[in-house]
Design a protein around this nucleic acid. Structure first.
Lengths: 159, 159
DNA sequence: GTTTCAATACTCGGATAGCCGTTGTCCGAGTGTTCGGGG
DNA sequence: CCCCGAACACTCGGACAACGGCTATCCGAGTATTGAAAC
């Protein structure tokens, strides 16, 4: 089990946008350049963030990406689910109903215990990410870093 | 992000072994037949469980797999980590140290906040799985299921 | 000087190849049984 | 009847293909700018 690399990129990009003034817009070139990431591939993930309603995109000059909501209302889970999907990591295939000792469906009134345990763990994981917001991360960065980020965003702000 | 299918199979197989008397041995053919799983592929995962010290394997006739410890001392996390590995799902590549605004290494005394949040979530996931044991699952099954499992294990017990 | 319009340059979005890991399968090494032969 | 040995059958272990998804990239559609030309 391994998370997509796009998760790290997406969270950092969202945090970068959150460091600027509300409504800050940055093109994918600007975002990719800040972290030294491949621009074309990063675009794929940014597109997912737009589809999920985390970011808002505008075309043309002066266009780019901006946060769709205040940073304090965007959880890390929102970003992760935008990239990885909302599906649980564990999918129960009901193997207890297969094989020579298959349990009849009428005896399967209770959910598979293994499934329940795995889903509980998945819920704990998501709950942990749901409690952290992009705004919280941006606010916790050192003043030097925030200042440098704001400067870069202002420089590369579309005319 | 998707967990390997072997996780479900492995947990169920461990629970099946836990339903029999302590020291119950079952060959991979017996285990695969019980759930209607492809024997050859299941063997791959059972091998991982042996490497991780969850199961103990013996060769030859009357051989097979048995739990390496009492079922109450085997956590679901033990089984999951045996199949999926102990590595965290998130790997921080320190992208803050790359790009045009790279933060110098000397300013990176604190761990990357994003990394810490992702690791916290990963820890919560693992902690949830660490709290559940194979024995607990086996004990919670209905008497009918347990009886049927014990019967199957006794029938296919190596002579 | 003001208005209009067309060319422009920059943006995002979808469609298209490449590589690594999970999936799936096979055959070989090792071991306890067991059956036959000899004492 | 008991002992010995060799063949056997059954087990696990590691090595070898095939598919799917993440990785990586490109080009096309759309839009605000901007500059010049006409009024």
């Amino acid at each position: 089990m391994k998370l997509s690399q796009g998760v790290e990129w997406s969270v950092h990009c969202a945090v970068l946008l959150a460091q600027g003034p509300p409504g800050t817009v940055a093109s994918r070139r600007t975002l990719a350049g800040f972290y030294g990431l491949p621009e074309a591939y990063l675009a794929k993930h940014l597109k997912s963030l737009v589809r999920s309603g985390v970011l808002h995109a505008t075309s043309g000059p002066r266009g780019g990406f901006r946060l769709a909501r205040p940073a304090a209302e965007i959880t890390v889970l929102d970003v992760v689910e935008a990239v990885e999907g909302e599906a649980s990591a564990f999918v129960c295939t009901e193997i207890r109903q297969r094989g020579v000792c298959a349990i009849p469906a009428e005896q399967c009134v209770r959910r598979c215990t293994v499934d329940r345990i795995m889903q509980d763990a998945d819920d704990a994981w998501r709950e942990s990410l749901r409690g952290r917001t992009i705004g919280e991360i941006a606010r916790g960065l050192s003043p030097e870093v925030r200042e440098r980020s704001r400067g870069y965003l202002a420089e590369n702000r579309p005319a």
